[in-house]
Write a protein that binds this DNA or RNA. Sequence first.
DNA 1: TTGTACGCGTTATCAC
DNA 2: GTGATAACGCGTACAA
Lengths: 334, 334
Amino acid sequence: MVDVAKAAGVSLATVSAAVNGSAPVSAALKGRIHKAIRQVGYKTNAIARSLKTGTTSTIGLMVADITNPFFTTTIHAIQELAHRHGYGVMLCCSDEDADKERMHLRLLADRMVDGFIVASAGETPELRALVEGGRTPVVLIDRLVDGLETDAVVIDNVAATRDAVRHLAAAGHRRIGLITGRRTLSTGRERYEGYRQALEEAGIAFEPALVGSARFGADDGYKAAAKLLSLADRPTAIFACNNLSGIGLMRAIHDAGLRCPDDIAVACFDDFDWANVFHPRLTTVAQPTQAIGVQAMLLLLERLKDATARALPPRVVRLKAELRVRDSSVRPAR
Amino acid sequence: MVDVAKAAGVSLATVSAAVNGSAPVSAALKGRIHKAIRQVGYKTNAIARSLKTGTTSTIGLMVADITNPFFTTTIHAIQELAHRHGYGVMLCCSDEDADKERMHLRLLADRMVDGFIVASAGETPELRALVEGGRTPVVLIDRLVDGLETDAVVIDNVAATRDAVRHLAAAGHRRIGLITGRRTLSTGRERYEGYRQALEEAGIAFEPALVGSARFGADDGYKAAAKLLSLADRPTAIFACNNLSGIGLMRAIHDAGLRCPDDIAVACFDDFDWANVFHPRLTTVAQPTQAIGVQAMLLLLERLKDATARALPPRVVRLKAELRVRDSSVRPAR
DNA sequence: TTGTACGCGTTATCAC
DNA sequence: GTGATAACGCGTACAA
């Protein structure tokens, strides 16, 4: 920049003012300066600017599983919006591991990101300190964390699961199995609660044996499903609480020599492109993945751009998910 | 840091030396300093360090479509390795749009990332300048860019497509359709070439009418497929050059009232979790997505860590993809 | 080993 | 409208 100033025959301060529009500069000088910029091949150094201004125009995005199509669409929406507002996105993935999460949170804090969007894999001191410190805005997505008072965008998991299980019950199923996710996550707890509510509504007694738990991934889902399917009095319908356990469930059904939906009805959380293409076409709970990302980024942008908004009390946005009934949950007429 | 020095009763330089290990510091002092660090709540300011050292410990990762499971696994591998080596990852997504790509490339350059990994949506002056400038190492993934002499990790698309189409031909198909991607991409051209080679091998005449083009996404794939299927003398097998057009293809087959593989055999590029679960189980060309990410990051790390390695000539790593034959390409015995 | 002074590229605050 | 100058927080060379 000092080179530009020299080349244009003006002072450093004037160049800065011209580049940032922070002070009025005469048109003539502006022209000379911009010409000099091109001549010298000057590029603004964001690092130096950050050091001075204390802002990096970068946000930290922390998700639990980047491989999951659910997060993928959300990430995409966040990025789009962030870039439109001049923010870069530094992405980290905890792989559902709280220890990794705290490491990455530290990495992001060191890099002085201006704000965080996080789908937490579990409460950590780092996350709590971040929120309670109040220096950097944090928006939670997908999962709430107990006692963390900060902005968040989640869906109504209780209602979503209740709807899905109610749909199964309405189709005449009385033995409805559940494959839950981790109970340490708010999503896991809420979806479990939705299941129980739907059973109660339908006057079906809760049976612990019909609830399997898949903490991680498709393999866990497979095992949990296989166990349910090997029950003497096996369920006639199963709801899987995320798309990974849904994969495991479908594989287990296939391996057990059963057919879906003829022998067993299936519905699961999280819709994806292929769900509507293959057989059986899968009944899913579709989350508004895009809207989650957009909302989260909007909340964050408010806190970032507007100094007065930083003092606002935490806002929790709860979006609705949509049940998409397809073939897998509906027994064909005989 | 100056506060830490005060609290520990030592000089600034000693603190810096203790933190960075750049000079020997007595154990006693080290203890005192670390205690002071905790007391003051000192966090190293990466911005200031970057300004001084000229490195940011951050790499820029630019992909064409973050929603695509193919990229997703690769991104994951890159991140994992990057974090292990103390690098942050700034992610950008061009949405297959060259203009967006140049914007994001500029954003990343402004942020002074230490290196780039890029799946380019098309050649841009920015990308070329970056590579030719030689100041920041660039590793291309998935797609080569004509005339860009830099490190790259790609797969052998010609062989992969040839294998797949050869498999179709070996099953007795003589009218084999193709749904290509964008010809401006090296992947599109190479896969097309593999198709032609396989036909020639099998002594099948090339028919332009059997080649559909899907530039973007599943909808384009649907249209291209629908056109092929409506041909008077329609193909008995179709190969789709990516997973998005594969979705479109399967949907088109369904909507045309045809069954796969009974009426039409299908294979497509890119494997994914669900391919093996639903019916028809899809025959795919599985890319070594994880290995692509690992290799790319390793190449980049070499250039980053080792000053002498920066002068090395460009290295192109070509990995092999694997044909996974499942049900969709095999006509059941009657 | 330690202290000091300087520079990295900007921006902000003054004076002119 | 414009120019000089002091920070921002850290690394480092050099002198003690």
